[in-house]
């Protein structure tokens, strides 16, 4: 009798904690977004949407995700496939590849500032090699395209590792016999990749995509370091509204926008990337 409730009792503290820290802010955000001095109003939304920064932020957040994520998935897949081979120094290569996992977005932004600033590594290198005669300017409002590029580079540098690790873990879980069977039955490397490995990897690719996309909706630190508000993003604008303007309502609207985007995109991925063989009953 006692053991029947034991698992629930063990889960209860963690569950309650999460419910509170996620449920409460959500309710609070909705409340802040829809009220002013305790009265229901849509004025906050009017204020948020009439500022062009909101749609700019929405646009840039999505644009960054659309540019960055496909590159990361392809790179990560290729790297993971290579890492399934054995070769000398593999451990060190793996170590190098996962280093960025532990580098924060702020640090990543700062590191790439070192690389790309006017007197930074890249410019000095290219100047000294005689490939350019003037430094390439990456930073400043008038070079926004370059700032965008800098963010793309930094994000590919820093967060491809997550995708790589998820896909590698997925690859390692595919039993070797599945692939050998295809080999025995006459499939060459590309056929095996297309017909066996990638379809079986679909769940891993799906979770990598979901995780990367949801994190991309929250992109903040690197953008703040490399471009400030030149390239507005949703989390950055939320932070700005809260800490500089002290407009809690508009900040909450930004937070809700991130939440909505995450839910919609997550649902889309689940809907369009489902693997039919995982859905059938036993």
């Amino acid at each position: 009798m006692k053991t029947k409730y034991l698992p629930y009792l063990l889960i209860l503290p963690a569950g309650a904690y999460l419910l509170f820290f996620i449920g409460y802010p959500l309710v609070q955000a909705i409340y802040l977004a829809f009220t002013q001095n305790g009265h229901f109003t849509l004025a906050n939304f009017h204020r948020a949407f009439s500022n062009s920064m909101f749609f700019q932020a929405l646009k840039f957040t999505l644009a960054l995700a659309i540019v960055i994520i496909p590159i990361q998935v392809v790179l990560a897949l290729v790297l993971a496939l290579i890492m399934m081979n054995t070769f000398k120094g593999k451990d060190w290569v793996l170590y190098a590849l996962i280093i960025p996992l532990t580098i924060s977005d702020v640090a990543g932004g700062l590191i790439w500032y070192t690389m790309l600033s006017d007197a930074g590594f890249l410019n000095k290198l290219l100047l000294n090699l005689g490939l350019i005669s003037q430094p390439i300017h990456f930073f400043g409002y008038q070079y926004r395209t370059m700032e965008f590029l800098a963010i793309v580079l930094e994000e590919i540098w820093r967060s491809t590792a997550i995708v790589f690790v998820i896909i590698l873990a997925g690859l390692q879980m595919i039993s070797r016999e599945y692939i050998e069977a295809a080999e025995v039955f006459g499939a060459g490397y590309w056929t095996r990749l297309r017909k066996i490995v990638i379809p079986m990897l679909k769940p891993s690719i799906q979770s990598a995509l979901i995780i990367r996309t949801l994190f991309a909706m929250q992109i903040f630190g690197a953008v703040w370091m490399l471009a400030g508000r030149d390239i507005p993003v949703l989390a950055g604008e939320g932070y700005y509204q809260l800490t500089f303007i002290k407009d809690y309502s508009v900040a909450s609207i930004y937070a809700l926008a991130i939440a909505m985007l995450s839910i919609v995109l997550g649902a889309l991925y689940v809907k369009f990337l489902k693997a039919p063989y995982l859905e059938v009953g036993e």
Partner: peptide, 25 residues
Amino acid sequence: SMVFQSYAVWPHMTVYENIAFPLKV
């Protein structure tokens, strides 16, 4: 052809697709 110890019947293909695979290749 080979029959594997763990069968290696691909989970993402139906029985038909599994059997047809060597022919398709």
